[in-house]
């Protein structure tokens, strides 16, 4: 039973976040917003971690600044904009859809469509090449008959 409980506890446990209890906001709703934002913001030192996951000092600072902005009444998008104004789109883990990222978002779709197009053209041409077979000429028929007779 104890073992089972232990196994169950491991199954339901989540990875630890870097957020310290003393960093948290008192209002649980605001803290929840800070967590959601923190998961979407890139730690600029470790680069592929969110600021919530990172133990870097800068990540800790940014977590605190996110909470300050929330406590001041900033909306989620205003908090993000605050950091984008200072660190660029790079601070967002999910890149925004704009002129600069058009290739990133639509590139794979474009490549897939292009591949489909090439495939279709290839398939069609193969069909066409098979279709127009001219009927045998009289000369060829005679030769064919002769060959068949020899075989028999």
């Amino acid at each position: 039973m104890k073992r089972l409980l232990f196994a169950a506890a491991i199954l339901v446990s989540t990875p630890a976040f870097a957020v310290d209890p003393d960093e948290m906001l008192k209002d649980p709703a605001q803290e929840a917003r800070a967590r959601e934002l923190g998961a979407e913001l890139r730690c600029l030192v470790c680069q592929n971690q969110s600021i919530d996951d990172s133990d870097a000092d800068l990540a800790k600072d940014l977590r605190q600044i996110v909470r300050e902005r929330i406590a001041k009444g900033d909306s989620d998008s205003a908090v993000k904009q605050y950091l984008v104004d200072r660190y660029g789109d790079y601070v967002l883990l999910k890149p925004p859809f704009n002129a600069k990222t058009l290739l990133l978002w639509l590139g794979p779709l474009g490549l897939a469509l292009a591949a489909l197009g090439v495939g279709r053209a290839y398939y069609r041409r193969q069909k066409q090449e098979v279709a127009p077979l001219a009927p045998l000429t009289d000369d060829e028929k005679k030769r064919l008959e002769r060959v068949m007779k020899d075989q028999a």
Binding site: V45, L58, L62, I65
Partner: peptide, 14 residues
Amino acid sequence: PAPGHASVDFGVTG
């Protein structure tokens, strides 16, 4: 001092 408001305003990463 931490959380380094002025430095974050400069966009400092390290």
